[in-house]
Write a protein that binds this DNA or RNA. Structure first.
Lengths: 132, 132
DNA sequence: ATAATTGCAAACACTTTGCACCTGT
DNA sequence: ACAGGTGCAAAGTGTTTGCAATTAT
């Protein structure tokens, strides 16, 4: 089953890629690509999630499923940390990433898959705002 | 609004606590506490999730919401790594945890909240099984 | 010409809610 | 007695699916 290049898919990809570091709800995505049916969006997101090009997660309050484009080629060499509060994602320098990965692997028999790992935490600005 | 100690709630808590390191679907939980209505389970899970005693996440395939008891008093001092494939959760030694947290904080202005952070990756056995 | 993609509406699965009844304090 | 909890059935939500029409190869 090979893929066709379609107008709708391009719109979707374009929108997702212009929001790389931002997790979006299906609704937000739909608004970002007017003229594309919801079912089409869901079908494409499903493909993308399967192939690992889109990362699925839950919002901080656990009430909404979020989708986020994941740039494999660029991001497979380092870890990512994501703020559970605002959703912002940061890229951890490769050096530090590998250092961390090694240590966790050594001590916990835990083979970190940098490509898919996302460390969760709270970014500075969110932390400063509220001590939730 | 204070909480009553009820029979049903005890059953639920008991079941969740006996599966601390395992993320469970609402369905699995329901099977684990026969005689408790689904709506009651959901209502209690919602409370627990709000108060941070239960952690909500998505299954590896992204199709199911999972709930997992989180032992705050015992686990707030160290990080956790969770296998995205089988869901197993491991506790990272306190020393190493703090080491990692410090480094991430220094270099990325990212204040890690050990209490709520879960590092995702792939555990050894799952990694060995399939190179997915 | 053939296979993949799309939109629509219907079908779904999971979760939430209203209400009357029950239980803990 | 009163506040909080529970079950049931109904209502919601977000997501998925069947199908006929459309578009890419």
């Amino acid at each position: 089953m090979k893929q066709y290049k379609t107008e709708k898919r391009n719109q979707l990809m374009g929108f997702l890629m212009s929001h790389r570091d931002e997790p979006l709800s299906a609704e937000q995505i739909a608004e970002g690509v007017p003229g594309v049916a919801l079912s089409t969006i869901y079908r494409n997101l499903a493909h993308l999630a399967d192939s690992g090009d889109v990362h699925k997660s839950l919002s901080a309050d656990g009430h909404t499923v979020l989708y986020q484009y994941y740039d494999k080629p660029r991001c497979s060499s380092h870890l990512h940390i994501k703020c559970v509060s605002c959703g912002e994602m940061k890229h951890v320098e490769t050096e530090l990433s590998q250092d961390l990965a090694e240590k966790l692997e050594e001590k916990n028999d835990f083979s970190i898959d940098a490509e898919n790992t996302v460390i969760l935490g709270v970014c500075k600005s969110c932390h400063d705002k509220g001590e939730k």
